[in-house]
Amino acid sequence: MSSPARMKWVAAVLAVVIAAGATLAWALSAPRPRYSVEEWQALSLTGDDAAGRLVFYAGGCESCHKSLGQDDPLKLGGGLELKTPFGSFYPPNISTDPVDGIGAWRPVDVANALLSGVSPSGAHLYPAFPYTSYQRVTPMDVADLAAFLRTVPPVKGKAPENALAFPFSIRRAVGLWKLLYFDNAGLRPAPSQSEQWNRGRYLVEGPGHCGECHTPRGFLGEMDLKHALAGAPLPDGHGKAANLRGGDFLNWTEADIVEALTSGFTPAGDVLGAGMTAVVRNLAELPESDRQAIAVYLKSLPTLGPAAAAKP
């Protein structure tokens, strides 16, 4: 076989390999919503907006989605800039405006966004929206939240487009990230533990999404679960989220935790700042029993020093 002919063969084989790889990557990265319309309907859940209000505050939705430059937590026009090593994310308008917000979403759409990070149009959502935690929210809580979100006022205007560096700007690639790092496993109650402990774990690991800041992240932004809640540098590069399994926190009593989550005041006379201010503002809306449950769960965690990734 002459050399040009061999070159042609090599080129042909390469083309096939690349095409096969691209096809495979495309197939693997396909968005997989948790529920089809029929599956969601089969659950026959009727959301209650008063219960959903508590899910809204447990989830801290307003921390990111609240309209800028004002204090009403129910004006959900979005637009806050979240600076990360991958670029800037802008949480969208989730008000009831049917065009700029999510007023046209059905409960199943809210479910698929929260639980599987998939939009109603079938596109991946970036995990800056913490569905990695929200996946553990119960379908009933989702239905309630969806009902509550129908009650907030419409707000005009869209948030800016995300400004991400290549290759993170390829939305479809989030599907490959999900294959690696999104277990989509939900949360099973631990029958050996008390109801209070289980409630606390649910709030912390699910709607409260504490680990999104307090758990260190790896190279692609995935959570380092071996060091879950053991403290981490904040993604915007300013300061760090505290270790909830070691350090000073070990000296906190359950009552100290409840106080800090209610008023912001710490046992040292400091006041929780940065992102925790909004967390406190939201958790203060929940019944005292929920803050108690969070404290019980946090105090039950095995102690652990800061992760290697959390060192400056």
Partner: peptide, 17 residues
């Protein structure tokens, strides 16, 4: 008096862990 603390710490103080 206390309501003043959180506002500034939210916007102007980094979390120190």
């Amino acid at each position: 008096v206390f309501e003043n603390c959180g506002g500034c710490h939210e916007l102007y103080k980094a979390k120190s862990g």
